[in-house]
Design a protein around this nucleic acid. Structure first.
Length: 511
RNA sequence: GGCCCCGUAGCGCAGUGGUAGCGCAGGUGCCUUUUAAGCACUGGGUCGUAGGUUCGAAUCCUACCGGGGUCACCA
């Protein structure tokens, strides 16, 4: 139940006073001929040709009031729409007293949406403005937004005074955050551009965009705890997908050469600066290439998207200058770990020995973990934090990679790589296993390996094996955390800052 | 889940045992080219919640709620 505070009560009273004057607080219709940016641009273009003619440019603009400066019989308002801001010059002799007094008596507030019709002009101070002769309230704001003032310097840089920075309130009330913080709006514009650029890239490469089930009877394709839900009519438990992998590869059986999907995955696990329970994943599978082909596509895709979104393949992330142009260094996992930690894990072929040497070096790992997980621990601890420039780490242990093909003449490693940028794991890819007998064995092996300690052991997907038995072309597959790429391209430190509505605990007093 | 930090007016913050403050925003008045407009006057607080210690608590203690960080977890 809304309890209006003092400021809100004042605005409610203003709304009543407006209604008493016959002025609708939330009229049905609005009219606009120019965005703020278009109005200014149109005037400047005309002015460049003919200063006289420019004075006759009629516009009607709409937007939210972001600055109010009342000066007696003349007032300046700045309104903002998505395109930017434009100044309104209100004069009592242009508007008439009745309308002018709405502003002078502050029945119109900061944050209200208004419509203003008038002619474009330049003030004495030189600002392109609308000299208003028609002024209409479009929507009353009852709750004032946080106040941020800005100073625009001659070179166009904007200095902001006052802040709306409380992260909890910003995430809970993203609408207020967006309304007030222009830079936040910019982040989500770049997010959209990132997605567009990715789709354009894959489409141009001949991939088919597909959509596969979010609700799955058997989850798989990754190791994560799922969210469980239930279909009432079918009396069936369903899982929210943790990956798209197995559904996408079935499509290669179906005859598509190359497919991709961009969508939401759900993982019932911890929340952190790089984890959200639901997040955006991109995956592709392409027939007749191996993981080296996937590496090439990865490098080109990331460079292309960066170029499209930021204008360059060299970006700045949290103070680091990062070069995304291909080629990226490719290191085997064994070499990377050996160089960074001094440990050659091939010298410790069983889990107990590897665990012992990790402990001897001061590492802390849970006892009894599979060998491959210990190797992953070494990578995460010694290698990953230093991978600022884009780097491909390849050839992963077999027992943590149930969908990847073995490396030739190597019983330990599989053709799998992950790529890292800014010390973040961005994605994961393999030469995909397409032998149904091998795949079945790997499922069973994984179940044996993980059942003991993981309550989320990946179930065996019989239908996936059935699909594979019809024949699956050799293929390379790939998955990437899109949110992390957006973080990189927008220089944001937390995944929450690239999600419009990051997950938060339920607020007290709300349903 | 463990540990650490934070929660004071709409927003940003100060206040570490003795009458709750500042800036912006708000209200009233003045101002016909301002732009972080200006000038004068002025209202506004369950100090996250609940207990406790104390003559006295925003301040110290405990628990809880919410947030952030970090570790664990995330083949």
């Amino acid at each position: 139940m809304w309890q209006p505070n003092k400021l809100e009560q004042e605005r409610l009273e203003k709304l009543e006073r407006l209604q008493a004057l016959g002025i609708e607080g939330y009229p049905r219709r609005a009219h606009r001929t120019h965005t703020a940016a278009q109005a200014v641009a149109a005037y400047e273009a005309l002015e460049a040709q003919d200063a006289e003619a420019a004075q006759a440019l009629e516009v009607t603009v709409c937007g939210r009031i972001r600055r109010v400066n009342l000066k007696g019989k003349i007032s300046f308002l700045h309104i903002e729409d998505e395109s930017g801001r434009v100044q309104l010059l209100l004069r009592v002799d242009e508007l008439g007293e009745a309308t002018y007094d709405l502003v002078k008596d502050k029945l119109i507030d900061m944050d209200d949406f208004v419509q203003a019709g008038g002619v474009m002009m330049r003030t004495r101070a030189g600002e392109v403005s609308v000299l208003v002769h028609e002024f209409v309230l479009l929507a009353k704001s009852l709750s004032p937004l946080p106040v941020i003032k800005q100073q625009v310097l001659d070179d166009g840089t904007v200095i902001e005074y006052g802040e709306f920075s409380d992260v909890e309130t910003r995430y809970r009330q993203r609408y207020a955050d967006l309304a007030v913080n222009r830079r936040v709006r910019e982040v989500f514009r770049k997010r959209a551009e990132t997605l567009r650029a990715m789709r354009r890239f894959f489409d141009d490469e001949g991939f088919l965009e597909v959509e596969t089930p979010v609700l799955q009877p058997v989850y798989g394709g990754a190791a994560a705890r799922p969210f469980i839900t239930h279909h009432n009519q079918l009396k069936q438990d369903l899982y929210l997908r943790i990956s798209f992998e197995l559904y996408l590869k079935r499509l290669l059986v179906g005859g598509y050469d190359a497919v991709y999907e961009i969508g939401r995955d759900f993982r019932n696990e911890g929340v952190s600066w790089k984890h959200n329970p639901e997040f955006t994943m991109a995956e592709f599978y392409k027939a007749y290439i191996d993981y080296r082909g996937v590496m090439d596509i990865t490098e080109r895709m990331v460079a292309y998207v960066a170029e499209q979104v930021t204008g360059s393949t060299t970006i700045t992330y949290q103070g680091h200058t990062i070069h995304l142009a291909p080629p990226w260094p490719r290191l085997t996992m064994r070499d990377a770990i050996r160089q960074a930690s001094g440990i050659d894990y091939m010298d410790y072929p069983d889990a107990a020995a590897l665990e012992a040497v990790i402990r001897a070096k001061g590492g802390s790992v849970a006892p009894g973990q599979p060998w491959g997980k210990l190797v992953s621990y070494l990578l995460e601890t010694y290698v990953e934090p230093n991978l600022i420039q884009p780097t491909i780490i390849m050839d992963y242990p077999r027992d943590v990679s149930p969908f990847a093909k073995r490396v030739d003449y190597d019983d330990v490693h599989v053709e799998r790589f992950e790529f890292f940028i800014a010390a973040m794991e961005m994605g994961n890819a393999f030469t995909e296993l397409n032998d149904p007998r091998d795949q079945e064995a790997r499922f069973l092996e994984m179940a044996k390996l993980y059942r003991a300690e993981d309550d989320d052991a990946t179930p065996l997907d019989e239908d996936y094996l059935r699909a594979m038995r019809y024949g699956m072309p050799p293929n390379g597959g790939w998955g990437m955390g899109v949110d992390r790429l957006v973080m990189l391209l927008t220089d944001q430190r937390s995944i929450r800052d690239v999600l419009l509505y990051p997950h938060l605990r339920k607020e007290e007093g709300t349903a």
